[in-house]
């Protein structure tokens, strides 16, 4: 009942609805834009105010983050390094596993297996991150401590594994999309020339999908960098520079979540620090996300070069 839905007889009410429709939709747009501008604006304003008291140079070069100490220090580097470590660690686990799973689903699995794996991916994507954080804290960490007795109760490795699990669906879904956009004729040509399936997949299909796979990696890393609950629960709250994955650390996100901000009075420099940390986090995730979207747009333009 597509075209039949248009009635030509009810003239009067239609005119009114017609006149109201545009302003109503415009009002929605203005409200949405105002909300999003306010979100970005309040971050910007408070961050600028914070940098009025704390020099940005010291903020980005000092290595002590002790905002509530007698003599507060605001060196964001330990937090930033921790975010980078967690993001890289999560990608280290999730990218190979996700990439290979996507390849398996697209090029090897039967219809039924593929459907099961797609279902698992969908369910995993719907699991709240706080539940994954609980899993990391109560299952992964004890396991790691049994394997390596020196492991701290809060450690980066456990968080990396759980964040890796969290970003797996992102890697799988976007990689599958990328693989699917490669013309099937390439596969058939390769097979017809006598190459084995594995060879065609590794030498032709995956390279042809490279920009899209790159997009999958960056979008997943953007999610990992912004992840809060897993790192808050599993990685602890020591703002320190360390290379050991078995020690605790504190990311940008964990600092924001743990400091029970609700209690910090407005206008103090500690309150401003939350916005400055949020702005840094915003910049990091924006960079990763924008790179991902850029690669995605290159994919849609096609081109196998």
């Amino acid at each position: 009942m597509t075209a039949a839905g248009i009635s030509v007889t009810r003239r009067a009410p239609r005119r009114l609805a017609d006149r109201l429709a545009r302003p109503a939709f415009l009002a929605c747009t203005v409200l949405a834009a105002a909300t999003l501008v306010a979100v970005a604006g309040v971050l910007g304003v408070e961050t600028v105010r914070f940098f009025g008291t704390v020099s940005p140079v010291r903020f980005f070069t000092e290595v002590d983050w002790t905002p509530f100490a007698e003599e507060p220090r605001f060196g964001v580097l330990p937090l930033l390094a921790a975010t980078a470590q967690i993001t890289a660690g999560a990608a280290f686990f999730a990218v190979p596993a996700g990439l290979m799973t996507a390849v398996y689903m697209e090029h090897y699995a039967g219809v039924r297996t593929e459907r099961v794996l797609a279902g698992v991916t969908g369910l995993l994507a719907a699991v709240p991150t706080v539940v994954l954080g609980y899993f990391a804290l109560t299952f992964v960490t004890p396991l790691l401590r049994a394997l390596w007795p020196g492991t701290e109760a809060f450690n980066a490795l456990s968080a990396c594994l759980a964040v890796g699990l969290m970003i797996l669906p992102t890697v799988i879904v976007f990689t599958r999309n990328a693989l699917r956009s490669v013309p099937a004729a390439l596969m058939e040509t390769g097979l017809a020339l006598g190459a084995g399936r594995g060879r065609v997949v590794a030498r032709v299909m995956v390279p042809a999908a490279a920009p899209g796979i790159g997009a999958a990696v960056f979008l997943a890393m953007a999610r990992a960098a912004g992840e809060t609950m897993i790192v808050t629960l599993a990685a602890g709250n020591q703002a320190q520079l360390t290379w050991s994955p078995l020690e605790g650390l504190r990311t940008l996100t964990a600092y924001i979540a743990q400091s029970s901000l609700g209690d910090a009075p407005s206008g103090t420099v500690q309150y401003g620090a939350f916005f400055a940390v949020s702005a840094v986090l915003f910049a990091v995730t924006w960079g990763l996300h924008a790179t991902g979207r850029f690669l995605m747009s290159r994919r849609s333009r096609g081109g196998l070069g």
Partner: peptide
């Protein structure tokens, strides 16, 4: 508008919390 929307779709949820604290809870 679409550029702004696409950019904000990738912002971490905790950042919205900080903005919400300033805008809705306090503001």
């Amino acid at each position: 508008v679409s550029g702004a929307v696409a950019n904000l779709a990738g912002v971490p949820s905790v950042v919205y919390g900080v903005a919400g604290l300033a805008l809705f809870v306090r503001g």
